[in-house]
Amino acid sequence: MPISANGPATMPGALVISLDFEINWGVRDQQTLAQYGPNLLGVRQAVPAMLALFAEYGLHATWATVGLLFFSTKAEMMANLPAVRPTYDDPNLSPYGVLGQVGEDEARDPYHFGQTLINQIRATPGQELASHTFCHYYCLERGQTAEAFRHDLQAAVRVAGAQQLSLKSLVFPRNQYNADYLAICQEAGISSYRGNEQSWIYKERSEEQQSLYKRGARLLDAYLNLSGQHTARWADMAASFPYNIPASRFLRPWSGRLKPLEGLRLRRILQGMEHAARTGEVFHLWWHPHNFGANLAENMAVLRRIADHFRYLETRYGMETLGMADVVTRLPSLPNLPAA
């Protein structure tokens, strides 16, 4: 039985996996296709590889998907855009100004359409399709508004609903969590979101508030324990609604340049998982499919080590594998929950 600081834990520990599925919609304002295109094309091999491993180990995962990926053709995309769109002070942040560059369909433009990959996710047991907003909406950038966010999220729910999908979980793009928008999420049927780690290193911020110092601290924290394990207690997640299922660790992509430190990076993750299993808490691991778009074999080897460790923790401590929506189904069994 898992043991918490207050005695035997009442709930088993859990491994939660979420992926920010966005292809070019999530990086277009930071990198060009010439710079990052190979990683984005590699998503076409990475997603099936990850799904095969998830199926092999019975791992559940939440795929937070940008709504613009749900279309098969540009004509469908253009016919389903929200009426109110973001008005960022920096126009480069909005994808709407560059829609003219999008190809006519997925076959001719693998960077901006994802319907075939979405179908593969849906066909794999234990996988949840969730929202990463419609257009990769930034909730903390100057010029954005609550009304634009509401229309964006409604568009995401609408396009998913047209494919008989009900979005219940949300990941804020760039982790720009905005507490003022939780009521809008609830209106749209969202019951959980991925919050940020509780450390100054990971505090939500706009892009202009980022700094090399903070980025460097996050990089170092991936290899050395600077900020703690960031496992979540069930009672803490149950304390408010929509439920915050906070991140524990970002699975950084394999790096040849940092290869000598790979053992530290993996150990940091495995120790967090084991802490969650021992204490009956939740370890939430996340990454982007395009992080595996290069060095796929090396990244998949790391993921397999994580899956093997989960299997050990499952046997030793009864650890569970849960998507974000699965976590929500566990929370109503706890006392003193807010009304959903």
Results as ranks from 00 to 15, higher is better:
166 S>N: 12
160 A>K: 02
158 R>T: 13
161 G>F: 12
176 Q>I: 09
182 L>F: 02
181 Y>H: 13
158 R>W: 10
175 N>F: 03
160 A>M: 05
174 R>V: 07
171 V>K: 03
181 Y>C: 03
176 Q>V: 10
180 D>R: 13
171 V>E: 06
170 L>F: 14
163 Q>W: 04
178 N>Y: 01
154 Q>H: 14
180 D>C: 09
173 P>Q: 05
161 G>P: 08
178 N>M: 02
157 V>N: 01
165 L>C: 14
159 V>F: 10
167 L>S: 07
165 L>V: 15
156 A>W: 03
178 N>P: 06
167 L>W: 06
183 A>K: 11
170 L>D: 06
165 L>E: 13
166 S>V: 10
155 A>W: 03
176 Q>W: 10
166 S>I: 07
175 N>V: 04
159 V>S: 05
156 A>G: 05
171 V>T: 13
172 F>K: 01
166 S>E: 14
181 Y>Q: 12
167 L>F: 01
180 D>E: 15
161 G>Q: 12
166 S>A: 12
170 L>T: 09
154 Q>T: 04
180 D>V: 05
182 L>P: 04
179 A>F: 05
174 R>L: 06
176 Q>S: 06
182 L>I: 07
178 N>I: 05
170 L>M: 14
173 P>N: 10
172 F>H: 08
183 A>I: 02
180 D>F: 05
155 A>Q: 07
177 Y>F: 12
171 V>L: 11
166 S>C: 10
173 P>M: 07
164 Q>M: 12
170 L>V: 12
160 A>Y: 01
183 A>P: 02
171 V>G: 03
157 V>Y: 00
163 Q>A: 11
180 D>L: 09
177 Y>T: 14
162 A>L: 12
170 L>Q: 09
159 V>W: 13
165 L>Q: 15
156 A>M: 04
169 S>K: 08
176 Q>N: 03
